[in-house]
Computed example of a mutant assay.
Amino acid sequence: MIRGIRGATTVTNNDAAEIVNATEELLWEMIRANDVKASDVVSVLISVTDDLTAAFPAQALRRIEGWTYVPVMCMREIPVPGSLPRCIRVMMTAETPKAQEEVVHIYLRNAVQLRPDLSLTRKSEL
């Protein structure tokens, strides 16, 4: 079955290293929590808020051994007034035997407030 795996994190500054490092941390958590293999991934979409312009967060995926051929695309998030600043969001689409309710979505740092319901579920599973 093809499933979407969501994740989000935030950074403190519009700094290239911080953006890429935070994205890599998020991706590793998503991979680990859902037992994802690169060969099972259809694509990865990464969005950033308008205040993050120092780096393409997709660079993080290229640091992960074996993920060279996974299609990845970066884009801007819709600039909704009052939305969470300095936020990186990921949508990973992958083949998995997991039922939809078994997929573990990962929210780190200030992004926990985006989906506190899913963040609480994750904490109880760790």
Rank of each mutant, 00 (worst) to 15 (best):
V42L: 12
E25W: 03
Q59H: 07
I106S: 12
A17L: 01
N21R: 04
A60S: 05
I46W: 07
P57E: 00
Q113R: 07
P81C: 05
V103L: 02
D15K: 10
V80M: 00
A38N: 05
E25H: 02
T12W: 13
N13T: 06
M92L: 10
P79W: 12
Q113H: 10
K123I: 14
F56V: 03
Y107W: 00
A38H: 04
W28Q: 11
W28D: 08
Q113S: 10
P79D: 12
P116F: 07
R89T: 13
N110Q: 12
N13D: 15
S119I: 03
P116H: 07
E25D: 06
D117Q: 04
D50V: 13
V80Q: 04
V70R: 10
Q59M: 00
P81F: 00
T96G: 06
N110T: 15
V112W: 04
C87F: 07
R63A: 01
N14T: 00
V112F: 07
I64R: 09
V42P: 10
R109D: 05
M91R: 03
G66Q: 08
N14E: 13
I19N: 09
S39I: 14
R62F: 06
S119T: 06
E29A: 08
A58M: 02
R3V: 00
I46L: 04
E125C: 12
E24F: 00
N110Y: 12
I19W: 05
I31E: 02
G66R: 05
T53W: 14
V72R: 11
V112E: 02
M91P: 08
P116E: 10
E77K: 15
V20L: 12
L52R: 14
G7K: 04
A99R: 13
P57W: 11
T49A: 03
V44F: 12
E102M: 10
M91T: 03
E101W: 09
T68D: 15
R63N: 03
S83P: 08
I64L: 07
L126R: 02
S43L: 05
T96Q: 01
Q100C: 06
